[in-house]
Simulated scan of single mutants.
Amino acid sequence: MTEGIFEKDWKLNFTQCYPNGQLKYSELDNILQVTASEHADILGFGTKAILRTKQSWVLSRMLIEIEKLPMFEQTIKVRTWIQDFTGSRSTRNFEVLFGERRLIASTSLWAVFNIEARRAEPLIASTDHVVPHPDRIMTSRTAERIDGNVSFNKIRDYQVVLSDLDIVNHANNVKYMDWCFDALDPKDVLTGKIKSIEMNFLRELSYGNQVAINEAKIDELTSIYSISKADRPHFLMQLTKKG
């Protein structure tokens, strides 16, 4: 591990892949986040450590740019590092490699969350030893705010169930991706033509919440999906296809 940069190898198993052998988009998201979590553990402010102070990391925004999805039984390398840290928020970047080829680049914005007060606050744990890499940027742009002020059509209703919850007792953000992709035509998902996935995690969801999954087609290559509760958006995801 280069100073401040963490690497982890993942051999893709059958549960992580679609019927065509490609890595599932939600599993890609999960792999990135688990790798980030392991790096945070090494740095001393991972989930287990900061739960002692009633804090947790929550994902606020993420941009994933995909050149090619890895396949079943391939071993990929995920490399991650912190770009910057401001006390209550952190930007973390990733790259996914197969051999020497970079398949995927990602950037993410994280916030520190008080699990009792259910609000953001500065991290209590020390970060003086963190080595940031402010100039090591892999994506074409930053993870931005998605414009949700568009005309959506509801495509599915959903109720949050126990298997959606994580250790912080809310629906894990990876599940949001699953709900959206499961509402789409499988043919559109399995083509491997998605160029980028951008996500905004706006509000948490809890067990039993009734939500609507909505779609807005912006143009031939771009669509926006929302997960809303009582007409209030909790999640936005913008998909851009390869031209």
Score class of each variant (00 low, 15 high):
M1P: 03
G4F: 05
E7C: 09
L12I: 08
T15N: 08
K24A: 08
D29A: 15
I31T: 01
I31P: 03
A40K: 01
A40C: 13
A40G: 00
G44T: 06
T47S: 12
K48G: 08
I50E: 02
L51W: 09
L51I: 11
L51D: 11
V58N: 03
S60G: 10
L63G: 00
E67W: 06
K68T: 14
L69I: 10
L69R: 07
E73N: 15
K77P: 01
K77F: 04
V78N: 00
I82T: 07
S88H: 08
N93M: 03
F94D: 00
G99R: 12
G99E: 10
E100S: 15
R101N: 15
R101S: 15
A105Q: 10
S106E: 02
F113M: 07
L123T: 00
R136E: 07
I137Y: 00
R141Y: 09
E144R: 13
N153V: 14
I155S: 09
R156H: 13
Q159V: 14
V161F: 13
L162N: 13
S163W: 13
I167Y: 12
I167H: 10
V168K: 02
V168F: 07
N172Y: 08
N172L: 06
W179A: 01
W179C: 02
D182P: 06
P186L: 14
K187H: 12
K193Y: 06
S196W: 04
S196A: 12
E198D: 06
N200R: 07
E204H: 11
S206I: 11
Y207Q: 10
Q210K: 08
N214T: 07
E215Q: 13
E220F: 12
E220H: 14
I224W: 07
Y225C: 02
I227W: 04
D231L: 12
R232T: 14
P233F: 05
Q238K: 08
L239A: 01
L239C: 05
G243I: 08
